[in-house]
């Protein structure tokens, strides 16, 4: 464990909490993609299946439970809460799950470190996490005017990924024999997806203007 990894995990948690608190406080999920949230829930469940028998550290176990729990709450709010569900922008959140899930499933069967069920599910979760933000980015693009909290949510998520890359660089430099190609490449692709958003986020911040994405 190094400081970059720790910062990454905290930023990840913070991004989820920002979203959850926004929904809870405003009783609105306008601008939030349910597709992305459900994909993240699928990512967490398939990756953290080992929670019950593969104890690594209390730190990891607590984060796993918190990530699954908080993301479940967001999905619950968006699907079931009597006021929140009315604010869900379903007409614009039309990205197809299958376009992301199917290629990730096929890829995890073809490229994995070990051919067994849990390893394949773990690999699937790595691939799926890399692209799970796409429905949210498409929704932002469509609605143009991005409210502050939604913008901050995506920014914090991107920052979390950037810190994971720093963590890998640090580990590569300090841990003999450390390598994780599958995770690195997926992680680089995932972080790359945020670059465009980052550009507009920083521009808006520099000009103290409301974040607006171009068409």
């Amino acid at each position: 464990m190094n400081l970059f990894r720790f910062a990454g995990d905290i930023l990840h948690l913070l991004s989820i909490l920002v979203l959850l608190l926004k929904i809870h406080a405003t009783k609105s999920c306008a601008g939030i993609s349910l597709k992305t949230q459900e994909l993240y829930l699928a990512v967490f469940i398939t990756r953290y299946l080992d929670l019950f028998w593969n104890f690594h550290s209390l730190y990891n176990s607590v984060f796993k439970v918190v990530y699954i729990g908080t993301t479940s709450m967001i999905v619950w709010y968006m699907r079931r809460h009597r006021n929140v569900k009315l604010t869900y922008d379903r007409d614009h959140d039309t990205f197809r799950y299958l376009f992301l899930v199917a290629p990730c499933a096929v890829l995890s069967l073809l490229i994995n470190a070990r051919y067994n069920l849990f390893e394949i599910l773990w690999t699937f979760s790595i691939y799926l996490e890399a692209v799970a933000i796409l429905p949210q980015l498409v929704l932002l693009q469509r609605t143009k005017n991005v409210d502050n909290l939604t913008g901050n949510y995506v920014f914090l998520l991107g920052l979390y990924r950037a810190f994971y890359i720093l963590n890998w660089v640090y580990r590569f430099a300090t841990e003999p024999g450390y390598s994780a190609w599958l995770v690195w490449i997926s992680g680089l692709i995932q972080t790359g997806l945020y670059l465009d958003f980052f550009y507009y986020y920083v521009q808006a911040w520099k000009q103290s203007k409301k974040l607006q994405l171009p068409s």
């Binding site: 990840h12 990756r47 080992d50 690594h56 990891n60 470190a113 070990r114 773990w122 963590n167």
Partner: peptide, 10 residues
Amino acid sequence: ASGQETHDEL
């Protein structure tokens, strides 16, 4: 790597 894969990151 040998044996069961260990995934120490989240």
